[in-house]
């Protein structure tokens, strides 16, 4: 299903080339790029949908070829789905997914987070929301200790919020008990 080797309809007018961070090129159907707001805007700005415009390869520095492969698989599968609307997010305590989605996202957490980053970068709302819900389904109903195991994190809480029972200290956290990640965006490195 991949577009890596477009054998079916290799008409350059309907495709653009994207380059992953490891230099691999992928030929993408313009129809597929509509699901990614980032790519759709780029195509619109550079008028790549016109046949008389020269199409330079689009570098995607934040996305590896493996992630790109995975994303293209998602885009292909959802090619004929209606456009994603924000209202489509419906709150439900039970997490149910399509079988295809469950198989597609049956990957380790670290790969899931990388894919989430990629979906966020390319602005594919359906994929982003689905990954968030899959991650939530892995957390829901679990105790704090189980969540720590699932997410592979150590605590920085000294005592339990409710019971007051001491919790094992996290040696990796800073001495003053500050959170591991900053809640305000840090300035970019110079």
């Amino acid at each position: 299903m991949s577009c890596e080797e477009p054998t079916t309809s290799p008409t350059p007018e309907n495709n653009i080339t994207v380059v992953s961070s490891d230099g691999k090129e992928f030929l993408l159907d313009l129809k597929l790029t509509e699901q990614s707001e980032t790519l759709a805007r780029l195509i619109s700005n550079f008028e790549y949908d016109r046949t008389d415009v020269k199409k330079d390869p689009v570098p995607l520095g934040n996305i590896t070829s493996a992630q790109m492969q995975k994303i293209i698989e998602w885009l292909q599968h959802h090619r004929y789905y209606p456009k994603w609307e924000q209202n489509d997010i419906h709150y439900s305590t039970s997490f149910t997914f399509e079988t295809w989605v469950e198989e597609y996202l049956n990957i380790p957490n670290n790969e899931m987070f990388e894919l989430l980053n990629a979906a966020n970068y390319l602005n594919i709302p359906r994929l982003f929301s689905t990954i968030c819900r899959i991650m939530a389904s892995r957390i829901t109903g679990k105790s704090a200790e189980q969540i720590r195991t699932v997410l592979n994190i150590k605590t920085d809480v000294k005592n339990d919020v409710y019971t007051g029972i001491p919790i094992q200290e996290d040696s990796s956290s800073s001495e003053d008990g500050m959170s591991e990640i900053s809640l305000s965006p840090s300035p970019p490195p110079i």
């Binding site: 969540i147 920085d156 809480v157 919020v161």
Partner: peptide, 8 residues
């Protein structure tokens, strides 16, 4: 439960 996982 998540609140009890870490301060963050």
């Amino acid at each position: 439960n998540l609140q009890k996982v870490s301060k963050t």
